[in-house]
């Protein structure tokens, strides 16, 4: 019974990877184009915006908060980029986008950390305000990006496509920030127990604030990368992006209740979702079932996580007669 328990836990722990494997096998057997290096490069490039969003979302989730406004930030900063920064060199455009999105993140952060509004409501509010402003500046018309920006999509660094480079840079910075700096460790502490962190003298509010700033800035970054890929955005751009980002983070093992998870998981989750989507395209599946498959995968992942934490909780209970359990 105990070895069975252990195996169950191992299986549940490995479930997201098994799911990934299953997706590879299923689509690989349905199409010979699927399991190719070119297609995998393609998957990573397509996954780039969601991966960057999910990495930002991870910071917020680690503090036990949530950011529903990332899609709106993508849309608004995308409008700014396309409408007002068409003529400037792209690095300046990127800088402006990053600053603007970080400021939007700061608004969320201030509402949540300093004014004490529940993040779900605060970012739901800013989501609509942000989209409203974006619709007003764009007049709800399509916004086109200049060649200077769309050409970045074809650019490479040492032969590596630019989108992959962008993800890699964001990932490394985020990983170092979370694992190797005091701030990062304090993010985990605050997410685990806000009161205890405050009592210990950690600037909990400031830490939560900065996590929203990071989430905002990375939403801008994700928007920039996806702008280079799609060339034009419409009023529906970024809708439900928060869903993909949260899903990717949670698929990768980040808890909605704070303190558990990391950016590696976010990357994995984004790749998993994109791999499934890519597979569906390759086998020419009915486009109407795409959202169903994605939602199904996420449902399974969350269910597995729920069962796993339930089992771990039961197994980690302290026993009075430990010799009977071992």
């Amino acid at each position: 019974m105990n070895s069975r328990n252990r195996i169950t836990i191992l299986l549940l722990q490995a479930a997201p990877y098994l799911l990934f494997l299953a997706i590879l096998l299923v689509f690989g057997s349905l199409s010979d184009r699927f399991l190719s290096l070119a297609n995998f490069t393609n998957i990573v490039i397509q996954a780039a915006p969601v991966a960057i969003l999910a990495i930002g979302m991870t910071f917020v989730l680690l503090t036990a908060e949530i950011d529903l406004s990332v899609g709106a930030v993508m849309y608004l900063t995308g409008c700014i980029l396309g409408l007002y920064l068409g003529g400037v060199p792209w690095p300046i455009g990127l800088m402006v986008v990053l600053v603007a999105s970080a400021l939007l993140g700061a608004v969320n952060g201030a509402l949540v950390a300093y004014l004490g509004i529940t993040s779900f409501i605060a970012t739901l509010g800013t989501l609509f305000i942000g989209r409203g402003i974006a619709m007003s500046v764009s007049n709800t018309a399509s916004v086109y990006f200049p060649e200077a920006i769309t050409s970045l999509n074809r650019a490479t660094v040492f032969g590596i496509p630019s989108a992959i480079v962008a993800v890699a840079v964001v990932f490394v910075i985020a990983w170092v920030l979370l694992q190797q700096t005091p701030f990062g460790r304090q993010v985990y502490a605050v997410g685990q127990d806000r009161d205890a962190a405050t009592k210990a003298g950690l600037p909990a509010r400031r830490i939560v604030f900065f996590c929203f700033v990071i989430s905002g800035a990375l939403a801008g970054m994700a928007g920039f990368v996806s702008s280079t890929q799609i060339g034009a955005i419409t009023a529906s751009y970024g809708l439900q992006a928060e869903f993909s980002a949260i899903a990717a983070a949670v698929l990768g093992g980040t808890s909605l209740f704070g303190g558990r998870g990391g950016v590696k998981g976010a990357l994995f989750g984004a790749l998993l979702i994109q791999t499934a989507a890519n597979g569906l395209v390759i086998i020419n599946a009915n486009p109407y079932i795409y959202p169903l498959v994605t939602a199904g995968i996420i449902f399974i992942a969350v269910a597995v996580d729920g069962l796993r934490s339930h089992m771990l909780e039961r197994l980690e209970r302290r026993f009075i007669r430990p010799w009977e359990i071992a």
Partner: peptide, 27 residues
């Protein structure tokens, strides 16, 4: 059932079901 039997958080469950059934409606 997902919440009570599978120990899933309501937010994630209903986020997934809203996407699933929203997509189903269109299909």
């Amino acid at each position: 059932l997902s919440i009570t039997r599978l120990n899933m958080p309501a937010f994630m469950v209903t986020l997934a079901t809203t996407n699933f059934f929203g997509g189903s409606a269109i299909w």
